[in-house]
């Protein structure tokens, strides 16, 4: 269910000449409609974040970050991403190796199941952990007995984040590795390389851009997730609030400048993510185009 996130690597010439071209006024009408629609729905909201954040000037903007609760939220968000991203990275690599390199019964089912978290509402993603670990949950009594707290505590936030970012890395790697095939790995093995050497020296370098891309997306979602985390967090200021939750609290307290200031951090993260995505797509496109370069003549 993540239509937009697959790497887009094809680049097709845009102008189609002759009989199949639109007349100029149709073309400009389309461009105007596109820009108008995107301005209304994308650019203006984005601009609003920064404008509202700076409404009372730089000092008020910067002051929003000196609040200990804001700092705690930033810390918790970084911690959450630092746990969730590596976990899903390792999973993505393992899943891609198993699925893209071997043929086995149940492969398609496995692929569908990996995508499942994308089809689940963020709210439900949080809810399922409450049902498992909450006070009334399956393991609730056991956890209470041993004085372990998962829901309304950091572990719950991490778990919910791992769930919603679960497929990102795997989804980027699997199609790429399927397309690349395993001949290079076979070649490495035939040259005497061990399994690990093959993985580190051949497989990993070949998928590094897609891997990076998956990690970037995974990280963006991990830091920005709101619904799932909201359910399991308990909203304890300075303790179980991530940046998005802190934004919500500030907003509901009518502290708009601070809310938008903290939100602007996330907006910058989003813009960096998009920039990184474009960079990676450009790299992949460049690599894919390489064999098409004019090759030097034989001898």
């Amino acid at each position: 269910m993540a239509g937009p996130i697959a790497l887009r690597t094809s680049s097709v010439s845009t102008a189609i000449p002759g009989a199949t071209a639109e007349s100029p006024w149709v073309k400009w009408l389309l461009i105007a409609l596109t820009l108008g629609f995107l301005t209304l729905f994308l650019f203006v909201p984005l601009a609003a974040v920064f404008t509202e954040a700076l409404r009372k000037g730089w000092n008020a903007y910067l002051a929003s970050f000196s609040d200990p609760a804001a700092l705690a939220a930033i810390k918790l968000t970084l911690l959450t991403a630092a746990i969730a991203v590596p976990l899903n990275l390792v999973f993505g690599l393992a899943a891609a190796w198993a699925i893209a390199r071997f043929n086995f019964v149940g492969k398609n089912l496995l692929l569908t199941l990996i995508d499942l978290p994308f089809a689940v509402s963020p709210v439900i993603s949080g809810l399922i952990y409450v049902l498992l670990f909450g006070l009334q949950g399956w393991l609730g009594p056991f956890l209470a007995e041993h004085d372990l707290k998962i829901i309304f505590a950091v572990p719950g936030i991490v778990l919910a984040t791992v769930f919603v970012t679960f497929p990102f890395v795997a989804r980027e790697l699997i199609p790429l590795m399927q397309e690349q095939g395993s001949e290079e790995e076979q070649a490495a093995l035939s040259l005497g390389a061990s399994g690990w050497q093959t993985f580190w020296r051949v497989t990993l370098p070949n998928v590094k851009w897609a891997l990076l891309y998956g990690v970037i997306l995974c990280n963006a979602r991990a830091m920005g997730e709101f619904g799932a985390v909201s359910v399991v967090s308990g909203h304890i200021r300075g303790k179980t609030n991530t940046i998005p939750l802190h934004v919500e609290i500030l907003y509901n307290e009518y502290n708009f400048v601070a809310a938008f200031a903290v939100a602007s951090l996330l907006a910058i993260l989003a813009l960096l993510t998009l920039a990184a995505k474009s960079l990676v797509e450009w790299q992949v496109r460049r690599q894919a185009a390489a064999p098409l370069e004019p090759t030097p003549a034989e001898e």
């Binding site: 984005l46 609003a48 974040v49 939100a263 907006a267 989003a270 998009l274």
Partner: peptide, 10 residues
């Protein structure tokens, strides 16, 4: 890419 909370308040 934009966290939903940010989209929401914007």
């Amino acid at each position: 890419a934009l966290p939903t909370a940010v989209s929401g308040i914007a």
